[in-house]
Simulated assay, not measured.
Amino acid sequence: MVQALPIRETITQWVDICPLTAIAPNTGVCALVEGKQVAIFRVGYEADVFALGNYDPFSKTFVLSRGIVGDRNGIPKVASPIYKQNFNLLTGQCFDDETVSIPTFPVRVVEDKVQVAVSK
């Protein structure tokens, strides 16, 4: 008889980063979340926020939070401030080199506070 392995549950906790108003529209900020640099972007003037890893794999530096926010064919993106590669803010996929992607993080705004999810 085969014994089933226990299912490992991941508990998601939300970490407060900053007030939404601390992020100017169409810009990003960097936050240290559970030891990882996370780039958090506010797109437009509403509460549309996205979170990606801050590490730019092309320049090998932590700079994506300083990138240029925009869109490509209606898809929100950030262009690296170093070599200008463009990353999809929804998926982390590089538009310019489909073999490269960066991690994304769940992010939300609750009572004007930007929060990023971490799994425990």
Results as ranks from 00 to 15, higher is better:
V114P: 02
V118G: 03
D97L: 13
W14D: 10
V78L: 14
A47S: 15
S101T: 15
Y55D: 05
K60V: 03
P76V: 04
A51K: 05
S101W: 15
A4W: 06
V29P: 02
A117T: 09
P25T: 06
L5D: 11
V109N: 13
I23L: 11
T12M: 08
T12P: 01
I68A: 09
S80D: 13
Y83M: 14
F58Q: 06
T91H: 14
E46M: 08
F62A: 03
Y45P: 00
N88A: 02
G28I: 00
T12L: 10
L89A: 00
G92K: 02
G74M: 01
N86I: 08
N86E: 15
V109M: 08
S59E: 11
A47Y: 04
S59G: 12
P19F: 05
V116S: 08
S65Y: 11
V63E: 05
V33G: 08
L64F: 05
V15I: 15
C30G: 10
K84M: 05
F50M: 03
L89Q: 00
P106L: 09
P25S: 06
K60G: 09
G92L: 02
V114M: 02
D16Y: 05
A117P: 02
V69G: 10
A22Y: 14
A79K: 13
P6S: 09
S65I: 00
S65W: 01
N26L: 11
G74W: 03
D48I: 01
F87P: 05
R42Y: 05
A39L: 03
F87V: 01
D56Y: 12
I11F: 07
F41T: 06
V38H: 08
I40E: 02
T99W: 13
